[in-house]
């Protein structure tokens, strides 16, 4: 009985997905900091599967405009991102890399089946947001989630130093 019900729901879901593509919204807050010397942080936002494999790079904010790619020097300070994805990437990446931001909340929206979510198969994942700031600290926040979702859902995590509120909203 239960199996039948799940099966039915899956079928409904599949139909919906075709009509109305699911989407994923990420909101990243960069906090205001009372420091003598402030540099906007480098931030990377990506999705890893349960075996720590990067399935999607959503954003990399760094000093893209420095001469001779000079801003790439500090990409490795986002250590986990560097290890999992960055070091094998050729920067900059269209639609992924961009300039750094100061304090504020920044929303990004992505559509299922389209880049950079094209590789996102149903399964268990975690959204990872890593920030590293010159003469400052580093913070990594993980937001676990299942993909896709049957109902709209928002996951929320609070950073404590280099990041503020991280929100992940998934719509079926």
């Amino acid at each position: 009985m239960k199996f039948y019900k799940t099966g039915l729901m899956m079928a409904v879901l599949a139909t919906c997905a075709q009509v109305n593509a699911a989407d994923l919204k990420v909101s990243v807050e960069i906090p205001e900091l009372e420091v003598a010397e402030y540099h906007k942080p480098y931030v990377a936002v990506w999705i890893e599967d349960s075996s720590n494999k990067v399935v999607s790079n959503l954003a990399v904010w760094y000093d893209v405009d420095m001469r001779n790619g000079g801003g790439e020097k500090w990409l490795k300070d986002m250590r986990q991102w560097w290890r999992r994805a960055g070091r094998a990437m050729e920067m900059p990446v269209d639609g992924v890399s961009g300039a750094t931001y100061g304090p504020g909340s920044y929303d990004m929206e992505f559509t299922a089946g389209k880049a950079p979510l094209s590789e996102l198969q149903p399964g268990k994942y975690r959204l990872r947001v890593e920030a590293a700031r010159e003469v400052g600290g580093r913070e990594l926040i993980n937001v676990p989630f299942n993909w896709p979702q049957n109902n709209p859902v928002t996951f929320k995590k609070q950073g404590s130093s280099e990041l503020g509120t991280i929100e992940l909203t998934i719509k079926p």
Binding site: K76, G86, R87
Partner: peptide
């Protein structure tokens, strides 16, 4: 030990 960019 881990560096990024070019010509380091």
């Amino acid at each position: 030990t881990q560096l990024a960019g070019e010509g380091r």
